[in-house]
Simulated assay, not measured.
Amino acid sequence: MIPLLAALQAAAEPLPEDAPANAAQAVAGTAPAVAHNGIDMLALALHASLPVQLVMLLLLFASVASWVIIFRKKRVLDRAEREADGFEERFWSGTELSRLYAGATERNREVGGLEAIFEGGFREFDRVRQRRGMDARARLEGAQRAMRAAASRELDGLERNLEFLANVGSIAPYVGLFGTVWGIMVSFQGLANVKEATIATVAPGISEALIATAMGLFAAIPAVWAYNRFATKVERMSVRYDTFSEEFSSILQRQAHADD
Rank of each mutant, 00 (worst) to 15 (best):
L4A: 14
L5I: 14
A7S: 15
A12K: 12
P14W: 11
E17C: 04
D18P: 03
A19T: 05
P20S: 01
N22F: 09
A24C: 10
A26F: 09
G29D: 15
T30Y: 14
A31G: 14
H36K: 11
N37H: 03
G38P: 02
M41V: 10
M41F: 11
S49G: 12
Q53F: 04
L54E: 03
V55S: 04
M56N: 09
M56H: 09
M56Y: 09
L58R: 09
L58N: 06
L60V: 09
F61A: 10
S63E: 00
S66E: 08
S66Q: 11
S66C: 06
V68T: 03
I69G: 01
F71Y: 12
K73W: 00
V76R: 08
A84V: 03
G86I: 08
E88T: 10
E89I: 06
W92T: 04
G94R: 06
T95D: 14
E96A: 14
L97D: 15
R99G: 01
A102P: 01
N108Q: 07
E115C: 07
A116Q: 12
F118L: 02
F118T: 00
F122M: 15
D126I: 13
R127T: 04
A136K: 06
R137N: 03
A138S: 11
R139A: 03
L140I: 02
L140Q: 06
E141V: 12
E141S: 11
R145W: 14
L155K: 10
D156C: 15
G157D: 12
L158D: 08
E159Q: 12
R160S: 05
N161M: 10
N161H: 15
L165R: 03
V168S: 07
S170C: 07
P173M: 08
F178R: 07
T180H: 06
V181P: 10
I184D: 09
I184R: 12
V186D: 10
V186E: 11
V186T: 14
S187W: 13
S187A: 12
A192G: 11
A192V: 11
E196A: 12
A197G: 01
T198P: 02
T201A: 15
P204D: 03
T213D: 05
T213Y: 07
M215T: 14
M215N: 02
F218R: 01
A219R: 01
A220H: 02
I221V: 07
P222E: 05
A223V: 06
A223C: 06
V224Y: 02
Y227P: 06
N228C: 01
E235D: 10
M237T: 02
R240F: 00
D242K: 11
D242M: 13
T243N: 08
S245I: 04
F248W: 08
S249P: 03
S250R: 13
I251H: 13
A256V: 06
A256I: 03
A256H: 07
H257W: 10
H257R: 13
